[in-house]
Amino acid sequence: MIPPEDTSVHSLPGKASVAEGFVLLDGPNGVAVTMTAYAASETGKSLIEAARMIEEKTESDK
């Protein structure tokens, strides 16, 4: 069994697609979400911003 602290951290990206005017996000792992275009867009921006903060910190720690 994978140690508990590792089981919910995903290292592979999810995949977004469009169906019936909504954005579907599948993965990583058990994620299965349907969003409006607005929710998907804002979630995407928020994810990119959060990832950018980690990347900047990682860069400054070097």
């Binding site: 697609s17 169906a19 019936e20 909504f22 579907l24 299965a32 349907t34």
Partner: peptide, 11 residues
């Protein structure tokens, strides 16, 4: 049952 939307189920 599966915790997804009808749109997702259809797809």
């Amino acid at each position: 049952i599966c915790g997804i939307t009808s749109v997702h189920t259809n797809r």
